[in-house]
Design a protein around this nucleic acid. Sequence first.
RNA 1: GGAGACGUAUCGAAGAGGUCAUAACGAGCUCGACUCGAAAUCGAGUUGUCCGCAAGGGCACGUGGGUUCGAAUCCCACCGUCUCCGCCA
Length: 428
Amino acid sequence: MLDINLIRQNPELVRERLAKKGFEADFTEFIAIDGERRKLIQETELLKAEKNKASAEIPRLKKEGLDTTEIMARMKQVSDQTRQIDEQLAELSARQQEFLDSLPNMPADDVVAGGKENNKVIKVFGSKPEFDFAPKHHVDIVENLGIIDYTRGAKLGGSGFWVYRQDGARLEWALLNYFMQEHLKDGYEMLLPPHILTYQCGYTAGQFPKFKDDVFQLRRDDGDGFSHFILPTAETALVNMHRDEILIEAELPFKYFAYTPCYRKEAGSYRAEERGMIRGHQFNKIEMFQYTVPEQSDAALEELVGKAAALVEGLGLHHRISKLAAGDCSASMTKTYDIEVWIPSMDDYKEVSSASNAGDYQARRGNMRFRRQASGKTEFVHTLNASGLATSRILPAIVEHYQQADGSVIIPEVLRPWMGGQERLTAK
RNA sequence: GGAGACGUAUCGAAGAGGUCAUAACGAGCUCGACUCGAAAUCGAGUUGUCCGCAAGGGCACGUGGGUUCGAAUCCCACCGUCUCCGCCA
């Protein structure tokens, strides 16, 4: 949610900054409603003040044995009037809120306008692997090795699911262990949150109402709408940890990471070139999350990107880091870096981590504040998130990068401690 | 799933239609006094938010409705916590 005062004071500025994201905002109706709303607030509060005075008066008059019929009749009137105004007010507020909810976050000043085409690669690690044999697609490799079972995955969950088996399951778990180890080393607190969340959690994250159809919803038996959903990313849980709290400045930043599977409908997003585990309905991810004071969020974002990149680097995978143009950042974010790993069979880079600074956008939606030590005033915190990492594209990258002519795959060294020291995946 | 109890400030807790919601009482915390210093004692302070240039008002007793001139207090629904019973990994 954007700062309503900023829109009031400088709608043109907000309009320009949203335009960088390709979002066209028109505030004329909003401003009109806002003026009307504030007028009504003043009216109703005047009446309420009168009511409060009378409420103190009535018992006094009664005690003195005086007649209160007249004042009570007058108050009946005031009460009806107040109710009427409050109804109008609620209507206007709802409309205003709905509009506010629909506005994405404003991109940071150093983020360029435009869409994907303006993304800028800022760092490249390693180079494309070269093979002296015909390299295989990861689906073929993992099926030969018997470590991912797509057929039975579909049997169990339908298309878009798979089963990790044998060394595949161990490799997956090794990756997660490797990530967790690094985060713990860096002093991040490990969390294991619920995977089923309330609607409010999706709202705070900025996921709802706009993108509520991207998640698996859990319907109530009665009525319409949904009260819970299965999380599409641990970010949705982590951003709600401190909802409606006032944090202590000296205790910030909070640095968390959580492992959860991520569940996404991905309706209509199937592409042939993404066969395998590039885009599934469920994938494993470790998510990093920070709550910071505003002046520290920029540095925190750099830290998160650095951490995510270091993980990919530790695996020795060729990847690049891009700074996204405004239009390619998701709605809640002011600035985003993507880390993309090279997938040889796709002849393309695929995202393995997205690191973003939401500024105070999510904090406003979730009412997450901290108290300034110096002034005693409350202020919204900044929230940041970064995958660290999602495995579903790392595992294909690993098997494709490290495949050998005989169909075996060299296991990256950092993972071997969790593979019983094993150095290579071979067909059993 | 059944039965019941309870949600009030940082915590415990009183209030049971108006005269107690900047909320009694107790504790904590902050500042000050006393002290060489500390403890004890004494004094002061200690929620958030909205409208307003300000003066000054409004709102919030889990949440949302209702009854009433007036609701923390009565009624309804929902959420949460706890206890007992049943079922269960």
